[in-house]
Design a protein around this nucleic acid. Structure first.
Length: 304
DNA sequence: TAGCCGTGGCA
DNA sequence: TTGCCAAGGCT
């Protein structure tokens, strides 16, 4: 893109963002780097509306990494509630412990160090560096990828997995100034979340519609390989979720009998293969540290 | 690297 | 109703 086109793109999106941005608590002026980090982990594959109440509770209970690290890991898993992917809670607890023990209790500000923390990958490291510390970092999430795919590449959806070319494109669009770069990143993400949505984009409200390559091409349908749906009914994921839900909702240790009765439910679905699946999933949860086995065939969330 | 890892709302 | 999707990370 020509420099003048990039500048016009910046102006359009930043002006739109200033007028339409949501006042999310992790964007408030008094936010802390820890609050930003917690929000970014919770937001991984999880909608904002579901994160909001859990984030508020977590920040009230554990305003610093050391506060969370002082708890048993199972407490983090319990307070994670139904956000999904509960291993994130475990990793967040481990990250808090590492921050306390290895980084003087302060969230690191550079991407490289952030990436060493459990549960912090390329996206989250860049997001924390940018949004918590105002660093110039290339933030590429699913929203950014979709906006770039449409507005610049002209396709309905990005490729299944992130490519080097996409990262290079995002970097090429990043303003030189640190603070402006961070605002640009969150603005593009917000545009993707509110206007340039996956299923029914609101092109009539889009500040970039006039220069959108996808619109100009006639909004062609996605022509790549169909996206693989994630199976659910009867899968290990459902089984693990069911077992963990029992442990979350009960205070203290649960008899193995109670746990086993939760899967696969009642009636004809109960057979030997389901029991094998159930036992395999429980073993895996224990191996991953999400469940702690106790003497006398009892189980609990670790340390609780 | 492709597959796995939760959960719930919406078109 | 059901498949798709939501601020990914890990192996």
């Amino acid at each position: 893109m020509r420099a003048t086109d990039v500048a016009a793109l910046h102006d359009s999106v930043l002006t739109w963002y200033a007028a339409h941005r949501r006042d999310l608590p992790w964007r408030a002026p008094h936010r802390t780097p820890w609050g930003v980090l917690v929000s970014e982990v919770m937001l991984q594959q999880t909608p904002v509306v579901r994160v909001l109440p859990v984030w508020e509770r977590w920040m009230d209970a554990w305003p610093t990494p050391a506060d969370l690290a002082a708890e048993p890991s199972g407490t983090a898993v319990r307070e994670w509630g139904r956000l999904g992917y509960p291993r994130r809670a475990l990793r967040l607890h481990a990250a808090a412990t590492a921050i306390r023990d290895l980084h003087g209790g302060e969230v690191p500000s550079d991407e490289e160090t952030l990436r060493t923390l459990p549960g912090i990958g390329d996206y989250t490291a860049a997001a924390v560096a940018a949004f918590a510390f105002g660093r110039r970092a290339t933030v590429v999430d699913t929203n950014v990828r979709r906006v770039h795919a449409r507005a610049l590449t002209g396709t309905a959806l990005p490729a299944p997995s992130l490519t080097r070319a996409e990262v290079a494109l995002a970097t090429s669009l990043l303003p030189q100034d640190d603070a402006e770069a961070a605002t640009w990143s969150v603005a593009v993400m917000e545009l993707g979340a509110l206007v340039c949505t996956a299923r029914a984009p609101r092109c009539g409200e889009c500040p970039v519609a006039g220069r959108c390559a996808w619109l100009r091409a006639g909004s062609p349908a996605h022509d790549g390989p169909a996206r693989r749906g994630q199976a659910w009914a009867g899968t290990d994921r459902q089984c693990r979720g069911t077992l963990l839900q029992v442990l979350r909702e009960v205070d203290g240790p649960v008899p193995g009998e109670t746990l086993r009765a939760a899967w696969p439910g009642r009636g004809a679905a109960r057979d030997a293969s389901h029991e094998l699946q159930r036992d395999r999933c429980l073993d895996a949860l224990v191996a991953e540290g999400l469940v702690e086995p106790l003497a006398g065939d009892r189980y609990r969330l670790p340390g609780t």
